[in-house]
Amino acid sequence: MLLDRVQRLGATTLQSIAGLGKAALMLAGAVFGKPNVRKGLPLLIKQLYVVGVLSLLIILVSGLFIGMVLGLQGYTVLVKFGAEGMLGPLVALSLLRELGPVVTALLFAGRAGSALTAEIGLMKATEQLSSMEMMAVDPLRRIIAPRFWAGVISMPLLAIIFTAVGILGGHLVGVDWLGVDAGSYWSSMQANVDLHQDVFNGIIKSIVFAFVVMAIALHKGFDAVPTSEGIAKATTETVVTASLAVLAFDFVLTALMFGG
C-alpha cells in the first residue's frame, strides 16, 4: 500500500522531470536553432517594435524620475559632509550597477512580459497555436523564438537608455537646480566609474535578466490553462515570478561581480 504510493510518486516525479527536460530541449532547439533570415528577420523586427519601442516611453519617464530622486536624496546626504562633489559618482554608480538593469527588468516584466504571456495564452486558448501546428508550422519557431530574441535584445538597450537618462536626471536636479558644480559632477564621475567594472557589468546583468524574464514570460504563456482565468493567472504569475527571479539573480550576480 505505502510502497505502492511511493512507487507512484517516484514515477510521477520522473515523468514530470522528463517532461520538463523535453520542453526545455524543444524550446532551446527552437530558440537557438539555425534561424531563417528571410522569414525570421521581419518577425524579429516586428517584435522589437512591440517589445522594445513600445516600452521606451515608460523607460524614459521612470529613468528620468529615478535619476532626479537620486540627485535629490544624494545631495541632501552628501552636503552634510561637504562632499556634494561626489554626487556624480553616487548617481552614476547606483544606476549603472543596480537601478538601471534591475528597474528596467522589473518594468519590462510588468509591461512587455505580462503582455507576451497574455498574447500567447490567448493564442493557445483560441487554438491559433494548434492550428499553426496542423499547418506544419512550428509555433515555437514562428511565435516564441522571435519574441524571445526581441526581448533579449531590447532589454539591455532599454537598460542603457534608462541609465543614461537617469544620469541626466541627476544632473538636472543636482547641478541645474541645487547648484552642484557641473565640472565636478562629470569629472568625479569619470574618476570613479570604470568601463569594465561598472558599465559592462551592468549590461551583463541586464542580459541575464532579459533571458530570465523572457523565458518565464513565454513559458507561462505557452503553458497557460487555455481559459480566461488560466490566462489571468498566468499573466500575474509572470510578473511575480519574473520580478522575484530578477531580484534573486541580481543578488547572485552582484556577489559575483562586486563581492570580491
Binding site: 552614476a92 549603472l96 541609465t163 543614461a164 537618462v165 544620469i167 562629470w186 574618476a191 568601463l195 558599465v199
Partner: peptide, 16 residues
C-alpha cells in the same frame, strides 16, 4: 538611440 546612450555612458560617464 540605445547606441547613442551607450556612447554617453562609455565616454562621458566612464571616461573610457
Amino acid at each position: 538611440f540605445a547606441i547613442g546612450a551607450f556612447f554617453v555612458l562609455a565616454f562621458k560617464v566612464a571616461n573610457a
